[in-house]
Simulated assay, not measured.
Amino acid sequence: MKVAVVGIGVAGAYLMNRLSDMRDVRVTGFERMPEDQHDAVCAWATCENVMSGLAKNCGLNFDDYVLHQGRHMKVDLNSDDYVDLKLKGMVSYDKLKLIQDMIKGTEIKFGRAPRKEELEPDFDLIIDATGFHRNYLPRLENELWIPCVQYKVRYKPGREPFDDFYLKAFPSMTGYFWYFPLGNGYAHIGAGDFAKAHNPLVQEFLKKHECETIKKVGRPVRISPPANCEPFTDGRKCVGVGESIGTVFALLGEGIIPSTWCADLFVQNMDDLQAYRDAVMKKFQVYSLIFKFVQLKIQGKFNMVRHAGDMLKIYRHMKGEEDRYGMAVRMADMLKVSQV
């Protein structure tokens, strides 16, 4: 089987690694960025408890990529109050290096974003791993996405504004500002906001805390869940994997682990796309509930009494998956955050 993987981000790199080991599959990757400009856009924080196993599937040791081991995360709630989350495996890591090592030895054509019509004659299957762009699948209606910007910066020794993870929530949970330490004075700072008020806050932070700007990147993040992102295929040769079909955890805007999980589900079910679709819907069923909560907050329609049942379900899910989220989950903290 000849397979094309388009988009070499987290999901695409994982697929290139796994599919290239299959005896009956010949896989070719396509990445629109030139090789010397290839980058891992936005957010380099994840949970090592989960990523260790996914990296091991690719013959890699995740410990080799960890840049900062989190202990606590301060969540600023736009008042005199804040939440101090105890972390249990959340790390910042060298996302680009991990992607580069995953694709080492595979066939990738950089600087190319071919049209679907160009690929169809030469490939039996085309995997759309283009993330937000969803270039090869039918367009979605009424989807929800959040614009984001991120800077990689460097501080002089001892001048770092924080020594661990920091978030600042925007009103009505329309988004948040983040600070992720990367070690040796480096950090990622950025923000995403549905109301598009994130850029002034980032600029204010850059002026307040003197630093050297190394790189700036930006792109939207789709937070609509898989249930809102069907169809997963074009009905012919193309199938979506990762953020292209909505695998972002809307409450945190986190897509690294769920997109890699999605790629793993594809590897397990690539001979039966209906089984793949069903596996994705089952795996990410709770994402619809979490998306509903975030959407209600953004629209100003969330009511603590009326939606108490949903809050309890979200709490039970995250409490039971503390090792997956890399943090201690407390109901008191969730109630505080939900009132922003």
Rank of each mutant, 00 (worst) to 15 (best):
G7C: 05
G9L: 02
G12D: 03
A13G: 06
A13Q: 01
Y14F: 14
Y14C: 07
M16K: 07
L19Y: 05
S20N: 14
S20A: 12
D24N: 15
V25W: 08
G29S: 06
G29A: 06
E35S: 11
A40S: 10
A40E: 12
C42H: 04
A43I: 03
C47A: 13
M51D: 11
M51L: 14
S52D: 13
G53H: 14
G53E: 15
L54I: 14
A55E: 10
K56S: 09
L60N: 01
F62V: 08
D63R: 09
D63A: 11
H68W: 01
Q69T: 13
V75G: 06
N78M: 12
S79K: 03
D84L: 15
L87H: 07
K88H: 06
M90E: 05
S92M: 04
Y93E: 14
D94M: 02
K95C: 11
K97Y: 10
K97F: 07
L98Q: 04
Q100I: 04
M102Q: 05
K104N: 06
K109H: 05
F110Y: 05
R115Q: 15
R115A: 15
E118A: 13
L119M: 13
P121N: 14
D122S: 09
F123H: 02
F123P: 00
I127N: 00
D128C: 09
H133I: 11
L137K: 00
P138N: 05
R139A: 09
N142S: 07
Y155G: 08
G158L: 00
R159E: 08
P161W: 01
F162I: 08
D163F: 01
L167V: 12
S172H: 04
M173Q: 07
W178E: 03
W178L: 04
Y179P: 03
Y179K: 08
F180S: 04
L182S: 02
N184W: 00
G185H: 01
Y186K: 04
A191C: 13
D193L: 11
Q203F: 15
K207F: 06
H209R: 15
E210T: 13
E210H: 15
E212S: 05
K215S: 12
V221H: 03
R222L: 15
R222I: 12
I223Q: 05
P225K: 10
P226Y: 02
A227T: 11
N228M: 12
E230N: 02
P231S: 09
F232H: 02
F232M: 10
T233R: 01
D234L: 12
R236D: 14
K237M: 12
V241W: 00
E243R: 03
S244N: 07
S244G: 06
I245F: 02
A250N: 06
A250P: 10
A250V: 10
L252N: 05
I256F: 08
P258V: 11
T260P: 06
T260F: 03
F266H: 02
F266G: 01
F266R: 00
N269Q: 14
M270N: 06
D271P: 00
D271N: 13
Q274H: 07
A275K: 10
D278C: 04
F284K: 02
V294I: 15
Q299L: 11
G300H: 09
F302S: 02
M304T: 06
L312E: 15
K313E: 12
I314G: 01
I314R: 00
I314S: 02
H317P: 01
K319E: 10
G320F: 09
Y325T: 05
G326I: 07
M334L: 15
L335H: 10
V337G: 04
V340C: 14
